[in-house]
């Protein structure tokens, strides 16, 4: 496995968090297939190494940096990898914290757990944008923040996670206003229910086999990463919805 890209990139570069499995991995594979140099991160070093190894069979331009996005030292490492590339065309904030499983009502969610949810889902994406804004601006890059229908619905037991994603949606819209004039597009994407480890943790012991695998969102990513920045700027998408609209 490469742990360092050998030279600055002349092609596009993408950073995907939570990239070792599930949705993050689908996005990483797609961008890799489209010729992006990939910087992948996730907490589970083993799973990440395996994902990097499999991607490396199809592209030489992939590096995996295991760690926690809430750890400033780890974020510095990610920022270093981006600085080394000299550009960041796509930042996908996908790594998410669900909270304790099984999910519990807000009145029983410890503030410590809630704080951790906000650290991962809200503050870490903002911190990564802060650290990488120059590289995003340089190439008129784009930021994709992964959201959830829990951000708008008020489902019982999803209050901590949902609040973090609702706040992230607002962060997306604010960043779209702030970075838009500098050419950077920011979108928020609700991938819909998927058969992932995280979704299983939300429904422990339940059969979630009726949910589609994360690859079902692939046509959406193929579409999204084909759109010019101004067409998608500031929008919130549902990847499994029948229609994906652009700005006119």
């Amino acid at each position: 496995m490469n742990d360092r890209l050998t030279s600055p990139s002349s092609g596009p570069v993408a950073l995907v968090t939570g990239a070792s499995r599930g949705l993050g991995r689908v996005i990483a594979e797609h961008l890799s297939d489209r010729g992006y140099s990939m910087i992948l991160t996730a907490r589970g070093a083993e799973d990440l190494a395996q994902t990097v190894e499999e991607l490396a069979r199809r592209t030489s331009k992939v590096v995996g940096l295991p760690g926690d996005v809430t750890d400033p030292t780890h974020r510095d490492r990610l920022a270093d990898a981006v600085h080394h590339q000299g550009r960041l065309d796509v930042l996908v904030n996908n790594a998410s914290e669900l909270g304790p499983s099984p999910l519990r009502p807000l009145r029983e969610l410890s503030l410590e757990d809630f704080r951790r949810i906000l650290e991962v889902n809200l503050l870490a994406p903002v911190a990564l944008v802060q650290a990488m804004a120059p590289e995003l601006v340089r190439v008129c890059g784009r930021i994709v923040n992964i959201s959830s229908d829990a951000a708008v619905q008020g489902y019982p037991h999803w209050g901590g996670y949902g609040a973090s994603k609702a706040a992230l949606d607002l962060v997306s819209r604010t960043l779209a206003s702030e970075l838009g004039p500098e050419g950077v597009a920011v979108v928020s994407v609700d991938p819909g229910d998927l058969r992932t480890t995280m979704h299983q943790a939300a429904f422990p012991g339940e059969d979630i086999s009726d949910r589609p695998p994360p690859a079902v969102t692939l046509p959406f990513w193929a579409w999204l990463f084909s759109q010019p920045n101004e067409r998608i700027q500031g929008r919130r998408y549902r990847a499994q919805e029948a229609t994906w609209e652009v700005n006119l």
Binding site: A242, T243, W244, E245, V246, L248
Partner: peptide
């Protein structure tokens, strides 16, 4: 799709 017709562009699989 939202109920009233309005100028729209994108992809659809409706």
């Amino acid at each position: 799709a939202a109920g009233n017709l309005r100028a729209t562009a994108g992809f659809t699989r409706l």
